[in-house]
Amino acid sequence: MDVRGYETERTALRALEPEDATPIQAYLNDAALIGCRHLPWSLQDVAPVSRAQVAAAIEEWGKAKAGFTLGIEAKASGRLIGHAGCDWNWDPHCPSLAVVIAPSQQRAGLGSEVSRLLLEVLFLETPAHTVIGWLTSWNAPALAFAAAHGFSECGRIPRAGLRDGAYYDDIVVDLLRREWLARRGGGGRDGA
């Protein structure tokens, strides 16, 4: 893993460009992702999005001064397979982390590679003390993913929205720097 180069074994994270709107739109409109697409607050997350809306999202992400959203490229194919971001706009002490992988590319460990990389970025390159994730209660795979990366459920905020005729909750998960260090086996690069 190359933290400062933003590369993992099989992925490379890179800045998003306007022409990325087409591949991003393709996976964002997969029904399996709707409701968990990590879009800017100004965009809806319950219905298909247009290419112009995705272009607006890319522009919005590009304005971030405290954090970033990057495209995830599969090294093997050179294709954009997702996006991921860190946000410390409120407080660099407690940034949030989000990873979105195209459904067709899920369950291959790519999201895990990216999560491990971004946790290294946050804990080695920023003053992060508590990293936070926001998930929805209906998204069991995401909850399992967060747990597998050491996050603990620290809250369940009721009535975040409606899905399938029922309210769902926002699940908040957190990971402390000392917990991350303990799992990693040390504080230097590559756990040394």
Partner: peptide
């Protein structure tokens, strides 16, 4: 209290 985010405030 619906969420207690540990040590997130200084």
């Amino acid at each position: 209290i619906s969420a207690r985010i540990r040590e997130a405030t200084y």
